[in-house]
Design a protein around this nucleic acid. Structure first.
Lengths: 333, 333
DNA sequence: ATCTTTCTTGCAAGCGTTTACATTTTTATT
DNA sequence: AATAAAAATGTAAACGCTTGCAAGAAAGAT
């Protein structure tokens, strides 16, 4: 067994001061005489006192905890973001409550409810779109929220991401410059704003700029999984596409391997550019050319922005687009 | 702005009952007349009342929150575990505070301190070993802890994992049966118990059983990264090893690609078995033969065990070894 | 009708802090 | 040495809920 929970009161008694004073030294309040501070600190050390954060939270209305709504920790894109978030969170002495939403509307709502009940000081939201119901709830709360890595079409919520439309346009243009006219656009659900309103728009913009007609038949909507890609390779094989822009790395890996298995020579017969630049891009053979997204940084910056919001600091700009790049590897010539 | 925080007291007043009664209906306490329950529920709904979990935590001494110490969410092995943990946690209405430790002793200690301050009801610990200092802290607290996916050499802490030694032995034996005598053992730091006391022991056991002498020169200790593997491939090339057991998938992918790039034909000139069976194993070409570890399940089972511990239920067995398998793919013949 | 027993409800004391505000001690000023 | 100002400390009221205990209401038993 272990000594009973020792409280601020015990420390006060042992040190011969009031609990207020103990509270002050614990919180680094300036007006405490050095002598008493030392005395208190010594007792704290001796008694092995550890302030109860829950009581603290109740009294101060601050929990130093932020909620993180994430579709799936298992997804490399999001886990990188989460890592960035956690690193700066802990830098600012916040903890994160991590909640998987599976990108499901109902789960998100429920998770949000939970987080708010737990009195989190702020929320980092990750997702592939922002459903209206959730947006509603967001606007009904005073808890600061920032979107990390996602898009907010209505520009209502502080967001840190990259310019997905521009990045996609760049990628597709690169393909066009390599001589392709029939370029497949492959992404996850077009229900998701990020695909429908950003990536696809960037794709169209690139085509338009090059005077190439948009062909609905070259747009493929599927799951973000390796297997989906692998299967899609067959379908792709039947079209006259000679290159593809792909919205996710795992998916791209599947397509690449599927195509290769059918005897297609990538990049000579077919070029591929993927979108995330996770570790996967270096592991496949040939290695995947990719847009490079600063995932970790997006998470870190989003969290930093959140700390400012929580501290009631003024945010100069609530919509940050971080720089991206395109890394040429072996799936393009 | 938003309506001021509404409390249980507001609900009580509006419903014409005492706060105790409101508390009872909120907590699903049985002895409340149906009529008053309905009345209260209606008010709760109308006022959009949301119980304050912090106050609840203070009063009840339960936070319905568990801490998860994880080396790195970005590591696929651990993120899968974490996902399993979160899924059953939310199933039992717990939230998780996720804290990255980078497998660093000091960070772990600090994170633990934090978690305890936040009054978590339990802790899931993930790591590649369990340092004595941490073990000490663990034993000094009343908060239940379970190890997920790791090993506890001293068998003191409830643990859910697989039999790493046996799995390794099986893998190496498979290699031996394929005719190899010079089998490299490649893992992360041998400082980590899981490598030193389990995997390496399994490796030695397999050799011994086959009457093959252990050769120190075939043991490689490195980082768990793709690049480390890629570079190690060169080194490996200089030895007379004809096969390798590898402790992590990313590392194995690096070795595979490094070897392939040097013109080694895997599996004909060299066979590889890796240890985790993450998605990577299907993405490399050739695909990696691997021990299959039920990561998600380990996390889920560990969390389930923790719920029992937190509920003061008796644990029949605090040391669960889940079944593992070996999946033959293309890096073995 | 009266007395038990069983349900329902209310009362009030915590839970461990923070934080105005008040009070006391120190230091500076004249 | 007396007084004002500043610094250090203490007092006690929140914070929003749970929960043991007591009291009142309803239902059964005789």
């Amino acid at each position: 067994m272990e000594k009973e929970n020792i409280t601020i009161y015990d420390v006060a008694r042992e040190a011969g001061v009031s609990m207020a004073t103990v509270s002050r030294v614990v919180n680094g309040n300036s007006n405490v005489k050095q002598a008493t501070k030392d005395k208190v600190l010594a007792v704290i050390d001796r008694l092995d006192y550890r302030p109860n954060a829950v009581a603290r939270g109740l009294a101060s209305k601050k929990t130093t905890t932020v909620g993180v709504i994430i579709p799936d920790v298992t997804d490399m894109f999001f886990s990188e973001l989460a890592r960035g978030v956690d690193d700066v969170a802990s830098m600012y002495h916040y903890n994160i409550i991590l909640a998987n939403s599976d990108d499901s509307g109902t789960k998100e709502l429920q998770v949000l409810e939970n987080l708010l009940a737990k009195q989190v000081d702020g929320i980092i939201y990750m997702g592939n779109g922002l459903r209206d119901k959730l947006r509603d709830q967001f606007s009904h709360t005073n808890v600061p929220i920032v979107l990390a890595g996602g898009v907010d079409e209505k520009n209502q919520i502080p967001t840190v991401n990259i310019d997905y439309a521009a990045a996609t346009k760049d990628a597709v243009t690169k393909l066009i410059n390599n001589g392709h006219k029939q370029i497949a656009f492959i992404s996850g659900s077009l229900q998701q704003a990020i695909n429908q309103n950003y990536r696809l728009q960037g794709y169209k913009a690139a085509l338009e700029e090059a005077g190439i007609a948009f062909d609905e038949a070259l747009v493929f909507e599927t799951q973000y999984t390796y297997n989906a890609g692998f299967e899609l390779a067959n379908e792709l094989y039947g079209t006259d596409a000679t290159a593809a822009f792909v919205g996710a790395d795992e998916l791209a890996a599947g397509i690449l391997n599927g195509l290769t298995d059918r005897g297609v020579d990538v990049p000579n017969d077919f070029e591929i550019i993927t979108s995330i630049n996770t570790k996967l891009t270096q592991i496949t053979r040939p290695q995947l050319t990719s847009i490079s997204i600063p995932m970790y940084d997006m998470g870190a910056v989003a969290m930093r922005m959140l700390t400012k919001l929580m501290g009631k600091e003024n945010i100069e700009n609530g919509r940050l687009s971080l720089p991206y790049g395109i890394i040429s590897r072996q799936t393009t010539r």
